[in-house]
Amino acid sequence: MDGIGKGVAPEAGAHAGSALNRSIMQLLEHVEYRLVTGGEDLEEIYRLRYQSYLRAGIATPNDSGLFEDRWDNLPNSYRFGVYCYERLVSTLRLHYISREHPYSPSMDGYPEILKHRVERGETFIEGTRFATDPDSAPAPGMLPFLTLRLGMVASCYFGQTSVLIPVKIEHAAYYARIFNARQIAEGKAFPGVLVQGALFEIPCGENLRLTLERFPFFKSTPTEQRLMFSNPAINPLTPQTIVPTAKYLREAA
């Protein structure tokens, strides 16, 4: 996850009370996630990446106005657009890393740390290519929560060992506060970006349970999880659209 953008309230993770949960639950009524494999939606995602990274000074201009890399079309790659009020507001790419598919940016960047863990059976979700359109944000500080919810849905579906996030050091405090992330490797440069991102790991298991309890808007039903990650046959011109289901779990509680 390349960055969390601007406008995140610093106290949000430290004391996430009912006001934050209530606000995001209300926003989720107007949010849909799209699992995209091709067509105009994918081009729109690549364009949002490019504009976001260019604005943040982490990418250089190019003639295409798009940002795509060699990890986008891997068999274990999931590219999502987050739409609020039917407008693309953010995007995130996830990789599910296992012995069958040991592919991701961090697997290439940190083989000395990760290769033996995957070979012994550990699995990971990796989140990268996080990009936002702050001009389309429905409310200050909400886009990171709406977007990173994708990683929580993935974690509930795959049940992996932990989540990997290459992030800029200045964003590390956010991930530590919200997800209990810890740094496991120093920063490295990756193709196409101008800044280094250190590798952080978020343990799952009990930590995932506590995070879901603290932030119930991260919860999801098995149906939502399957729609996102069970590899349905997707028409590249008609992306899979998924509606958040956290409200149903809240109503059932």
Rank of each mutant, 00 (worst) to 15 (best):
H95A: 06
T147F: 08
Q240G: 02
D69S: 01
E206K: 14
R226M: 11
N231Q: 15
A137Q: 08
L74N: 12
K219M: 13
G81L: 09
P134H: 07
G205L: 09
G65I: 09
D133H: 08
Q240W: 00
E126H: 03
A14S: 14
L28P: 04
C204M: 15
G127L: 11
R70K: 14
I58P: 02
V243E: 05
L28N: 01
L54K: 04
R117H: 05
I165E: 03
E100G: 02
E186S: 11
G7L: 04
G3C: 08
L143D: 00
G38K: 00
E126V: 02
G57V: 01
L199P: 10
T221K: 00
P140M: 02
T128I: 01
R177Y: 07
K219C: 14
C84T: 07
L94M: 07
L150E: 05
L114M: 10
F130P: 03
I4G: 04
R93Y: 00
R49V: 02
S162H: 02
D2E: 09
G151R: 03
Q183E: 15
E170C: 09
F145T: 06
P138Y: 03
F218H: 06
E29I: 00
Y103A: 06
L42C: 05
F229D: 05
V82A: 01
N231S: 14
G159T: 11
L94D: 07
P111G: 01
Y78M: 06
R149L: 08
R250P: 02
D108F: 03
K6T: 12
L20K: 05
G81V: 06
N231R: 15
R214D: 07
R22F: 13
A14C: 08
S77L: 07
E40T: 12
S106Q: 00
Q196I: 06
N76R: 10
K188F: 05
E213R: 15
I125N: 10
H95Q: 10
S220C: 13
P166W: 04
L194K: 10
H171T: 09
F130I: 08
E44H: 09
I234F: 01
S52N: 14
G127F: 06
A16V: 10
M152S: 12
P111R: 05
Q51Y: 09
S18V: 14
L27E: 13
E186L: 08
G13E: 03
P144Q: 02
F215C: 13
Q160L: 10
T60A: 15
P191K: 10
P138F: 01
